[in-house]
């Protein structure tokens, strides 16, 4: 999800000047953008060596950490916003991390590939796991340990007693508010305790 339209759409959910924690920050592009365009400060968490290096090259604060070990480094409500952009699908303890996200941050912003996007549904109807631009991996060779849908996350949020402040989809860089579970490749949620 590196296209700039999508990144900007998600960045708009982050109030200017926010203190941000980006869980699974990748190469630090989002943090660098938030720093530059929205005067944000903060840190990225990343496990991958190459990404940690990329963050250092961008001048983004990065902490190398396995998110499956939790967020004990961070006290309650120490961030305005905690981002989980395309991270959820890689975590073993997604439910715990969801609660951790809103413990450490006043709001949590989640984005992940929506498995219920209609091309995925078509593919499964044909009896095959989807391979798309958004989910570009073969089923037997994917870093994603789970897939979920826009609708699924609403239920998980409810189950975890989290407040959904906003939710929508993104497709082709555009915000999708009508039937996002069907029409959007990316699902976005803004959550709080």
């Amino acid at each position: 999800m590196s296209d700039s339209a999508t990144m900007e759409t998600i960045a708009r959910l982050v109030p200017p000047g926010s203190r941000v924690l980006d869980l699974g920050c990748g190469d630090g592009a989002m943090l660098a953008y938030l720093k530059e365009a929205r005067r944000c400060t903060g840190y990225g968490i990343e496990i991958d060596d190459a990404n940690v290096l990329a963050c250092a090259q961008r001048g983004v604060n990065v902490i190398q950490l396995n998110l499956d070990e939790g967020l004990s480094l961070f006290d309650d409500a120490t961030f305005d916003v905690v981002l989980q952009i395309d991270t959820l699908q890689h975590l073993r303890n997604a439910e715990v991390m969801l609660r951790e996200t809103v413990r450490v941050g006043r709001i949590g912003v989640l984005a992940f590939p929506n498995f219920a996007h209609w091309p995925n549904r078509l593919s499964v109807l044909r009896g095959r796991m989807p391979v798309t631009r958004r989910l570009p991996y073969q089923w037997y060779d994917t870093p994603n340990i789970r897939v979920g849908t826009h609708a699924d996350l609403a239920l998980l949020a409810q189950r975890s007693n989290l407040r959904v402040l906003d939710s929508f989809g993104i497709e082709g860089g555009k915000t999708i508010r009508f039937a996002p579970n069907l029409r959007a490749g990316t699902s976005v949620y803004t959550l709080s305790r």
Binding site: T41, V62, I63, Q64, L65, L73, T78
Partner: peptide, 13 residues
């Protein structure tokens, strides 16, 4: 982090 300092940390395997 508690003091909100700029910090980066790498754990080299």
């Amino acid at each position: 982090l508690d003091n909100r300092r700029d910090v980066s940390y790498a754990e080299i395997d």
